[in-house]
Simulated assay, not measured.
Amino acid sequence: MNKLLISLLVSIGLTGVAHAAGDAAAGQTKTAVCAACHSADGNSVVGNFPKLAGQGEKYLLKQLNDIKSGARMVPEMTGMLTNLNDQDLADISAYYASKKVQLGQAAADQVELGQTIYRAGVAEKGVAACTACHGPNGKGIGSAAYPSLSGQHAQYVASTLNKFSKGERNNDPAQMMRDIASKLSAAEMQAVSQYVQGLH
């Protein structure tokens, strides 16, 4: 009887602290300010602002929480999330995850090198293939909160790799991206960034 009671109390307790799942419809009503940089459907038209459309919900939620807490510094987002609660962030993440990303086009002269890095890595530098975490079509691994790269702006990807390489961005699990980016040359970063812009 005691074990049953303890199990019941633990279950109630866990249920009580669990956050509700994100609601995409509710999220749409909370993204008016976001649209200024990321566009209404999450397909930003400016290369230095990331496309959020089609991004993994778990990844988006982690980034929003990291930005809000200061674990990830994004000057353009300063104060934007201050008044949003956990449910708001979950709803916004669900909304953008529900949208379809608009693909870009890779620069033709960058495709060969970019594809090689993305699919095979750079063995002599100890750089693993991007497909290991981001998938063959760049859709990421949602359950692990590994981001989708398919269609992302090359400018944003290159900037992000550069920040990881310098340690300016450091909210990657087990320093995976910092380790990889620090081994890539500027030309390699640019090529793989161009490649993922058109990847689908």
Rank of each mutant, 00 (worst) to 15 (best):
G54H: 06
G56W: 00
E57N: 09
E57D: 09
K58I: 10
K58R: 11
K58T: 13
Y59L: 11
L61T: 03
K62D: 10
K62Q: 12
Q63L: 12
N65H: 08
D66Y: 12
I67F: 07
I67Q: 08
K68Q: 15
S69D: 10
S69P: 07
G70F: 10
A71Q: 15
M73D: 14
V74E: 12
V74H: 05
P75C: 05
E76H: 08
E76W: 07
M77Y: 04
T78A: 14
M80H: 09
M80R: 12
L81S: 09
T82D: 11
N83Q: 11
L84T: 08
N85D: 15
N85Y: 04
Q87R: 01
Q87Y: 03
Q87D: 07
D88Y: 09
D88A: 04
D88W: 07
L89F: 02
A90N: 08
D91F: 02
D91C: 03
D91L: 06
I92A: 03
S93V: 01
A94S: 09
Y95W: 01
Y96F: 15
Y96S: 05
A97G: 07
A97H: 07
S98I: 03
K99L: 12
K99R: 13
K99Q: 15
K100L: 06
K100M: 06
K100V: 14
Q102K: 13
Q102L: 12
Q102D: 13
L103T: 08
L103A: 11
G104Q: 09
Q105D: 13
A106Q: 05
A108N: 10
A108K: 14
D109R: 11
V111A: 09
L113Q: 13
G114N: 05
G114F: 02
G114Y: 02
Q115K: 15
T116Q: 15
T116I: 03
T116D: 14
Y118D: 00
V122D: 04
A123Y: 01
E124N: 11
K125D: 05
G126C: 06
V127S: 00
V127R: 01
V127K: 00
A128T: 11
A128F: 02
A129G: 03
A129W: 03
T131H: 03
T131Y: 01
A132M: 12
A132L: 13
C133G: 07
H134S: 06
H134L: 06
G135Y: 03
P136F: 14
N137G: 11
N137Q: 14
N137T: 11
G138S: 05
G138M: 04
K139C: 02
K139N: 13
K139I: 10
K139R: 12
G140R: 00
I141W: 00
I141S: 00
I141D: 06
S143K: 12
S143L: 14
A145Q: 15
Y146A: 09
Y146L: 12
Y146V: 04
P147A: 10
L149H: 06
S150Y: 07
S150M: 07
G151F: 10
Q152H: 11
H153D: 09
Q155C: 06
Y156E: 08
A158L: 09
S159I: 02
S159K: 14
T160E: 15
L161S: 10
L161T: 02
